[in-house]
Amino acid sequence: MIELKNIKKKYQDKVIFEDVNLTLCDATVTALIGHNGCGKSTMLKVASGLIRPDYGEIHYEKNYRFAYVPEKFPAVNMMARSYLMHMAEIDGLYGKTESMERINALAEDFFLEGMLDKPMKNLSKGTLQKIGVIQAFMSDPEVLLLDEPLSGQDVDSQDVFIDKVKKLKEQGTIVLLSAHEPDLIHALADRVYTIRDCKLIPYEISPRTRYMIWIAQDENRTPGKEMKPTDNGYIVVADERDLPLEIKRLQKEGWHIGKVYEECSND
């Protein structure tokens, strides 16, 4: 658990935030949202001890192993694999072979095969960002700081990213996330805050639109648990983010999709 008490931070004479009291609990994703420059990244850095607050104190329950995915990952002058191997060696959690296997597995998960043996200077912004994500995930962090982690990443990688963060959360990792993407917040956040008028305030995010997919009955197929029987068919509920993937999956399984409509609508 990390406790921030009465934190105040200012740059020159401008107060960024003040009277911040925040507790980051184990196995919880705390998200910070807000417009650019409102102080989300600064809050992340203050909470992790990278920046000293002007007032207040931070209490760490223990000497945590932090991992950090920065908003913009720097292009270091070496091969991506070499960089990751160095970081794994510094972490000292695994042997050389195991570290290599973990890096390869994560690279495969994030569709980076073949990219690891290229100089980081030649990688695109999105690919570089994925290297930033991999270096954070490979250290099994106890505290994970995510500063707009999805910038430049493709949709499939975003899904992988969300899955990995969920797994870390299940393992008890404290996650502090700064993001703009509502999908990411919906998928991960347990608590959402924003910084308004220099104060940290809880933020209510509007619920996602949910859709119902009506599927025609097919006696040759066995319905899944998620498929609720109705007249002559089944209903599958999916939110707006998962809808395309769900439709794709059902079609792949051979189901005939009748129609899709919003959960509350009468269509």
């Binding site: 990278l50 920065p70 270091v76």
Partner: peptide, 15 residues
Amino acid sequence: EETVEEQLLLFRGKG
């Protein structure tokens, strides 16, 4: 020195 790179090393050094 790249600030982010240094910050990552600082985290890895745990202090």
